[in-house]
C-alpha cells in the first residue's frame, strides 16, 4: 500500500514538473524553431525588392539544385571539414596535455591556469588584429624572429599554401584554453583513490593514463569534442579578419560563404538554402558522433 502511494506521489510530482516547465519549453521551441522554419521558407523563394517592398517568388528546390555547382560552397564545405578535423584534433591533444600537466603540479597551479586561459578572454576582433600584425610579412614579429635566426620570412596569409595553416594556428591558439579548462575541471573531479590503487598495483604513468585516467575522462572528452566540433564548423571571425576567404579559395569556409552570398550579394533565398544545408550537415555529424560516442561509453 505504502509503495503504491509513493509511486502515485512521484508521478504527480513528475507531472507537476512537466507542466511547470512546459511554458519555458514552449518559448524555447518557438524561439529555436521559428528562425529555422523561416530559413527553410526563404530557401525555396527568390526574394527581390521593388518599389520599396519585398517580392517573394516560389522557386521550389532551385537553390538547392544550384549548390553543388557553386565553387565557393564546394570549397567552403571541404575547407570547413578539414579545418574542423585538424584544428579540433590539435586543440584536444594540446588541451588534454596541458590539463594533465597542470593537474599534477602542486605549486603555481593557479598561475599556470590563468596564463593558459588568457587567449580565450580576448574578443575575436582583438585576436584578428594581433595575429594580422604578427603575420605581417614586412614588420610582423614572426618573420622578424625568423630573420634573427637567419631564416627566410614567409607571407603567412598571402600564400595559398600557408594561409589555411595560419588560420588553423590562430584557432588552436584561441580555443585550446577552452578545451584545457573543461578537461582540467574533469581531471580534478576524478576520484584520487583509483589513481592511488593503480600506483600501488605498480602501474606505470603511461598505463595509469591509458587504463585509468582516459577511460574515466571519456564522457568529458566526448562532450568537449562535440562542443568544439560544433563551434569549429561555424568558424567565421578568424577567416573574416585574417584572409577574407583568400587567396583564391584557400581559406573559404562555409560560414563565410553564407555571409558573402546572403549579405554581401543580398541573395537571401540562396543564402538560406546554404544555411539549411549547413544546419543539416552539422546536425548529422553531431548525431553520428554522439551515437558513436554513446556506444563507446557503454562498451567501457
Amino acid at each position: 500500500m505504502r509503495g503504491t502511494a509513493d509511486r502515485a506521489s512521484a508521478k504527480a510530482a513528475d507531472r507537476w514538473r512537466f507542466y511547470t516547465l512546459a511554458p519555458a519549453l514552449a518559448v524555447y521551441l518557438l524561439l529555436a524553431l521559428l528562425p529555422i522554419v523561416n530559413l527553410a521558407t526563404m530557401s525555396v523563394h527568390d526574394i527581390h525588392w521593388q518599389q520599396g517592398a519585398a517580392r517573394w517568388t516560389l522557386v521550389g528546390m532551385k537553390h538547392y539544385a544550384e549548390l553543388p555547382r557553386d565553387v565557393l560552397v564546394r570549397a567552403g564545405l571541404a575547407n570547413t571539414a578539414l579545418f574542423a578535423l585538424i584544428a579540433v584534433t590539435a586543440e584536444m591533444l594540446i588541451g588534454f596535455a596541458l590539463a594533465l600537466f597542470v593537474s599534477r603540479i602542486a605549486v603555481g597551479r593557479v598561475l599556470y591556469r590563468t596564463i593558459f586561459l588568457l587567449p580565450i578572454l580576448l574578443p575575436g576582433i582583438v585576436i584578428g588584429a594581433i595575429w594580422k600584425l604578427m603575420y605581417n610579412p614586412d614588420f610582423g614579429v614572426i618573420n622578424q624572429l625568423l630573420h634573427l635566426l637567419g631564416l627566410p620570412g614567409f607571407d603567412w596569409l598571402g600564400s595559398g599554401s600557408l594561409a589555411f595553416l595560419s588560420v588553423i594556428i590562430v584557432d588552436v591558439w584561441h580555443w585550446t584554453p577552452f578545451v584545457f579548462l573543461l578537461l582540467l575541471a574533469g581531471l580534478e573531479t576524478l576520484p584520487q583513490d583509483i589513481h592511488e590503487a593503480a600506483m600501488l598495483d605498480g602501474a606505470s604513468a603511461w598505463q595509469e593514463l591509458r587504463d585509468v585516467t582516459i577511460p574515466m575522462m571519456v564522457p568529458i572528452l566526448v562532450m568537449t569534442l562535440a562542443f568544439r566540433l560544433i563551434v569549429s564548423f561555424k568558424v567565421f571571425d578568424e577567416v573574416y579578419l585574417l584572409t577574407g576567404g583568400g587567396p583564391g579559395t584557400a581559406t573559404e569556409v562555409l560560414s563565410f560563404t553564407i555571409y558573402r552570398r546572403f549579405f554581401t550579394e543580398d541573395r537571401m533565398g540562396y543564402g538560406s538554402a546554404i544555411s539549411v544545408i549547413a544546419l543539416f550537415l552539422l546536425t548529422l555529424v553531431i548525431v553520428l558522433f554522439m551515437g558513436m560516442a554513446r556506444r563507446r561509453m557503454h562498451a567501457h
Binding site: 614586412d138 607571407d155 600564400s159 577574407g244 583568400g246 587567396p247
Partner: peptide, 20 residues
C-alpha cells in the same frame, strides 16, 4: 611585391606611405 594576390586597399596605401 611578393604574393600580390593578397594586397587589398589597406596594404596598397601602406606600401605608398612607407615608400615601398
Amino acid at each position: 611585391p611578393p604574393n600580390p594576390g593578397s594586397y587589398g586597399q589597406a596594404q596598397v596605401i601602406q606600401a605608398l606611405l612607407t615608400g615601398k
